[in-house]
Simulated assay, not measured.
Amino acid sequence: MLLPLDFDLAAHERPRVVHLAEAVLSTEPRSITSAVNSRSAGGRNDFSSEGDYWWPDPKDAHAPYVQRDGLTNPDNFVAHRQLLLGFARDFGALAAAYKLTGDERFAAAAVRQAHVWFVDPTTRMNPHLLYSQAIKGRSTGRSIGVIDTVHLAEVALGIEALRGSKALMKDEEAALMAWFRDYLKWISTHPYGVDESKAENNHGTCWALQAAAFAHLVKDDGALADCRRRFKEILLPNQMAPDGSFPREMARTKPYGYAIFNLDVMTGLAAVLSSEDENLMTWSLPDGRSLVRGVEFLAPYLANKSTWPKKPDVMYWDNWPVRQPALIFGALATGRQDWLETWKRLEPDPQIEEIRRNLPIRNPVLWVNLK
């Protein structure tokens, strides 16, 4: 079924996005320097987080933490992650509103937010993740911590949308480009980033999404070409089963949420990497595996969760699905009206923090028509 010819993503999203942007116009930006993790080995400007599924050893309170997969420890340090989520949400809304309306108020507010996070030396986040996903008694930081900045992918595309605005002065744009260029180099060369790029599950997908979005922003054609190669030769063939599912995600204690998350991120990656000559949403391996097949597998369960063939997720089962970007990217690529209708009726702006954390693509207008 083809999409109705009069469907306009920008027109559909404009009321929601402008409403969100109006609400944060006067919000004072708060970077990671406004919260301190006393257990972190890093400094004031260093992002810090602790592994979600790690808990005190019930046999010895002084022993290193032990893992309980899928069960989040509420006592771990998450303030920096919350601040990043809040920034990405507010900045994304402002940048999307500017793209949709051309209203300079939104651009000015967005640039003010970005300045605090990436430019001002007293508040900026250092462009690395040496102290992310730490585990008490085991590690001061880990490679899987690179996933904590997956929300910066949409921020990078939002900065692109601000080009041409009066607010994004040349010096400011140059400073922002320098930060993202440095961070792209870090995730591409530091052992943490290199290890994460080799992950065979959603962590590898999230690394590629970040690398692609950052490379797109700073116009690094070599890095973009490498991301396309990874998508075609590593991510899709090594992660997707013949039926379009992701077996490694389906084997987790939260298979529904993880399957959704990985598909969303991989379709976002395709949106960034596609060109006028090649649509990676519809591109397929010789055996027919493609992101379209991935959406075909998951879409029925997004439309009717009661048909999900596995046990409910151990946490947050009741909170999924929301307005998953895989549905709109799939609909735009194939003309599937049923996917569009499912996307339209789902919640676009979830309030549960864990769901927000696993929804790094909130403004699809920033991801389409990239040049």
Rank of each mutant, 00 (worst) to 15 (best):
A23L: 09
V24D: 04
L25G: 01
S26P: 00
S26W: 02
S26A: 11
T27W: 04
T27C: 01
E28V: 12
P29H: 05
P29R: 04
S31G: 02
S31Q: 01
S31C: 03
I32H: 01
T33Y: 06
S34D: 03
S34R: 03
S34I: 00
A35T: 13
A35L: 11
A35M: 09
A35K: 11
V36W: 14
V36S: 04
N37W: 10
N37E: 08
N37R: 10
N37I: 11
S38W: 10
S38V: 15
S38L: 15
R39D: 14
S40R: 05
S40I: 06
S40V: 11
A41C: 14
A41V: 12
G42M: 05
G43V: 13
G43W: 15
R44Y: 09
D46K: 06
F47N: 08
S49T: 12
S49W: 06
S49H: 03
E50M: 08
E50G: 02
D52C: 03
D52V: 00
W54C: 05
W54N: 05
W55C: 02
W55S: 04
P56H: 04
P56V: 09
P56E: 01
D57R: 10
P58L: 03
P58K: 07
P58Q: 03
K59A: 11
D60V: 09
D60L: 02
A61G: 04
H62M: 06
H62W: 03
A63T: 10
A63G: 06
A63H: 08
P64G: 07
P64N: 08
Y65D: 06
Q67I: 06
R68P: 00
R68M: 07
D69P: 05
D69K: 15
G70H: 13
G70Q: 14
L71C: 03
L71T: 10
L71N: 05
T72N: 11
T72W: 12
T72D: 14
T72K: 15
N73A: 13
N73C: 12
N73M: 14
P74N: 14
D75L: 14
N76V: 15
V78Q: 13
V78I: 13
A79S: 07
H80A: 04
R81K: 14
L83H: 00
L83K: 01
L84G: 01
L85I: 08
L85E: 13
F87P: 00
F87C: 00
R89F: 08
F91D: 02
F91C: 05
F91V: 11
G92C: 01
A93G: 06
A93D: 05
A93V: 13
L94T: 07
A95E: 01
A95K: 01
A96H: 00
A96K: 00
A97G: 07
Y98W: 15
Y98N: 05
L100E: 01
L100K: 02
T101N: 11
T101Q: 11
G102N: 06
G102C: 08
D103V: 06
D103E: 09
E104C: 04
E104Q: 12
R105S: 03
R105G: 04
F106N: 02
F106E: 01
F106K: 02
A107S: 13
A107W: 11
A107H: 09
A108P: 00
A108F: 07
A109F: 12
A109L: 12
